[in-house]
Amino acid sequence: MTATTVPATGAHPVLLAVTGAAATSASAALIKLSGANPGTAAFLRCALALTVLVPLAVAEHRRRGPRRARVVAADLAAGVLLGVDFVFFSVSIAEVGASIATVLISVQVIVFPLLAWRGGGPRPTTGFLFTIPVMLTGVAIAGGALGGSAPGGDPVTGIAAGTAAGVAYAGYLHLTRRSGAAGHTIAPVAISTTAAAATAGIFGGLLTGIHLPDDPAAWAWLATLALIGQVLAWILVTAALPRLTPGVGASLMLLQPVLAFGFGLAIGERPTLVQVGGCVLVIAAVSVVTRTRRRS
Rank of each mutant, 00 (worst) to 15 (best):
M1N: 09
A3E: 12
V6D: 02
A11P: 01
L15R: 13
L15Q: 08
L15A: 15
L15F: 09
G20T: 15
A23W: 05
S25R: 07
A29M: 14
A29I: 12
L30E: 03
K32P: 00
S34G: 11
S34E: 01
N37F: 09
P38F: 10
G39C: 13
A41L: 10
A42S: 14
F43H: 02
F43V: 12
R45E: 11
A47Y: 01
A49M: 08
T51S: 07
L53K: 08
V54W: 12
V54N: 07
V54G: 02
P55M: 12
L56K: 03
E60N: 12
E60L: 04
R63C: 10
R63V: 13
R63I: 05
R64F: 12
R64A: 15
P66M: 09
D75K: 04
A77W: 00
L81D: 03
L81G: 06
D85I: 02
F86L: 15
F86E: 02
F86A: 10
F88K: 03
S92G: 07
I93D: 14
A94R: 12
V96L: 00
A98P: 11
S99D: 11
A101K: 13
V103G: 04
S106Y: 05
Q108I: 09
I110T: 10
P113D: 00
L114A: 10
A116T: 11
W117G: 00
W117L: 12
G120K: 06
T126S: 10
F128P: 02
M135R: 00
M135E: 05
T137Y: 12
G143I: 08
A145Q: 14
L146Y: 03
A150M: 08
V156E: 06
A160M: 14
A160W: 03
A161W: 06
G162A: 13
G166F: 01
V167H: 07
A168V: 04
Y169D: 03
A170H: 07
L173N: 11
H174L: 08
R177W: 04
G180P: 09
G183F: 11
P188M: 12
A190T: 07
T194F: 13
A195M: 02
A195V: 01
A196N: 08
A197M: 15
I202A: 13
G204I: 06
G205A: 11
L207N: 06
G209E: 10
I210E: 08
L212S: 08
L212Q: 04
D215W: 04
P216M: 06
P216V: 13
P216L: 09
W219V: 02
W219Q: 01
W221Q: 05
A223P: 03
T224M: 14
I228H: 01
Q230F: 09
V231W: 05
L232Y: 07
A233C: 10
W234C: 04
I235T: 12
I235D: 06
L236T: 06
A239L: 04
P242L: 00
T245F: 08
T245Q: 06
G247S: 12
G247K: 11
A250V: 09
Q256F: 00
P257M: 01
P257D: 05
V258K: 00
L259M: 14
F261R: 04
F261Q: 05
F261L: 13
G262D: 06
G262M: 06
F263P: 03
I267A: 13
G268Y: 13
R270H: 15
T272H: 04
V276M: 11
G278P: 03
V282N: 03
I283L: 15
A285Y: 01
R293K: 11
R293E: 15
S296D: 14
